[in-house]
Write a protein that binds this DNA or RNA. Structure first.
Lengths: 205, 205, 205, 205
DNA sequence: CATGAATGAGGGTTCATTCAT
DNA sequence: AATGAATGAACCCTCATTCAT
């Protein structure tokens, strides 16, 4: 007896859901978890408050989901940049490129991850820690390759270097995002050079 | 006949005010701005809620003041480490030592600055940005000395390197603070070495 | 050319309507008026929420209608038991039998009437009062017969005795319904005896 | 340093708390748990909504507490009436007197117990069941005395009779409370006579 | 000075109801 | 007829802030 949920309707619903998540992303990125209200989100999405609860179970769940999805997106982007067979320097450049690209074209993504979830609900705090660890882990994997290729300074604790890099990049990215017209290319080039120095890179002969 | 609060009274008042600020620091560092309530603070300080509003105009002002004071404390500590006449390496070691010391013995100070005020009230956001800039500025001054002594790699944007350092250190510090028994000494030594590489340090002959 | 819904269509519609009312009865009996939601009802009936509003104008009206219908059903059952020509004792036994039978086989009916509509909407409160009065009225009619047959103790206010009986039975019924395997037969026999004593029954010689 | 909480202040607070509980009692008795809102209560008490939460942790807790307290009050009143050494008839009269007195002078107490907590939150449902059981228990104890004095009809299930009595009385009481000027005395006398018949009372020679 | 009772704006969430498809 | 996405009033509750004592 059930009417076939016309494909069109389904698509429309999905589109709306996506639109609402983007609205939520923007609001959370700007205000952070606590300061952002559900009313802010629905206003941004131009829907009624009940609509929010039609699409999402509650504020916390949405934020957690948004945070995880965003974190996965970033980490996969980095993963992609480091996969394949290439030398350390090439991969590092690609990775940095990738990260800065996201920062340039999807600033809310970065804002959400870096400031949106701080000082929030405990379950969220946990997620944030996980993200930082996975982010450092991504860099660490890259460094390990460099180490195996024998192009990095020794001794060094690759984990700690990876954390240093992750933190350093984000500091610079946040500074960039505060500028009206950030020159991402120059920053990327400099970040690459600085990071190469940081790990004591010596090109193989 | 003009009233004048006797010196003793004033001291007592100041002591209470200080105690309340320490209580507030602890609470804000643990929970962050939004999750911490004024009631949490007064409970920690063991005073009535009305007393809070005798000493501070409101929650936001207190937090801002606390944030500024804490930021000043950190920045002055770094300043002290870099003042005097010594070579670049010595000063960098002293600075790093100083920062990590604070993290080790006054973790709340670091927590407050790094996570306590993120995603909070707009006025606070501003303060946070200022702090990051001043922190980068402190490192930048040190790097400039190194540059003038000719011991750093060129070309490099000292400002950007300073930001990289500031961000990298904090990432590692936050990781350390999550551990039950962080070995600060090892971390400090590594941070120094990594930072020296980052700036392309070459000891003068 | 006037449309006329074919007999078949009407029957189908009535069937659906009935099914939805049974679903509503179950839900209201279990949760009571306020705690039961329209969504609970449509879920139980396995239809969409819009369908509910096609068949019923709103929640309150449905409940009121359901309550009335159920009340009528009970009262008619009692009526039937007391109709015909028989002596007081026989009729009382039949009436009690009838009531306890409903409680045993259609507990939701009783639950709905006794607890489903308490503390609800004003219009419902009115209905509940009416039901109690009609229920007492049914007993009162029976008692009047007994009085006319001269088998009841005098003096007694038949109305008040009728209320006493109605309230006493329901108290016991509700207690029974809480048991996993209520022995209705024993309870019925006891209720009959107790009620006969209550009205001071003396078999005619 | 703590100022002595002047006895006067304390008393005032207690008085207010009591006033608020009475306001809550009235509202809950009139509307039942679900239909009554916290705003209804604070409006009745003429205080702000925050004041409610200063005195009580939440709506459910208050209601539960109110319900328990009221139940205890009623049960203790009955207890008092049945204690002491007197014959069965005297005690039954006293008990009935006591119950009807409360109904006459504190109708909200009865309303709360009988209708206020029906169909409410699960924890409350439990409380209601407990109350009914304790109420029946009170009557049962009285009947047992009568049984031991050999003035009651045998055989009869004293528990079931007790429930019958409890339910019957409440039905009549609720009817009375609907009248503008209920004549409690006549009702009491009749209830006593009817109850004596119900239990098959035969005065000892 | 210090207290804590009192306030009420505002936050998250529910749910009866509507209406375009 | 039937659907279910969308709405928004209203609920419970929190918490920064005030002020009489």
């Amino acid at each position: 007896m059930a009417y076939r949920s016309s494909e069109k309707t389904r698509q429309k619903k999905d589109a709306k859901r996506t639109a609402m998540m983007q609205a939520a992303m923007k609001v959370f990125a700007e205000k952070g978890y606590h300061a952002a209200t559900v009313r802010d989100v629905v206003k941004q999405a131009d829907v009624a408050i009940g609509t929010f609860y039609f699409y999402f179970p509650d504020k916390e769940t949405l934020f957690t989901y948004l945070y995880e999805e965003t974190a996965d997106f970033i980490l996969q982007s980095l993963q992609q940049a480091t996969s394949g067979s290439a030398d350390f320097e090439t991969k590092l450049k690609a990775t940095m490129q990738s990260y800065l690209n996201i920062a340039a074209y999807e600033p809310a993504v970065i804002q959400l991850l870096l400031v949106g979830g701080v000082g929030a609900v405990p379950s969220l705090h946990e997620k944030r820690i996980q993200f930082r660890e996975r982010l450092a882990g991504a860099w660490q994997r890259l460094l390990r390759e460099g180490h195996e290729q024998g192009v990095l300074a020794t001794p060094q604790d690759l984990r700690r270097s990876a954390e240093y890099i992750a933190g350093g990049i984000d500091e610079i990215v946040l500074t960039l995002l505060r500028l009206p017209n950030p020159n991402t290319d120059v920053a990327t080039a400099e970040l690459i050079q600085t990071t190469l120095r940081l790990v004591g890179y010596q090109a193989a002969e």
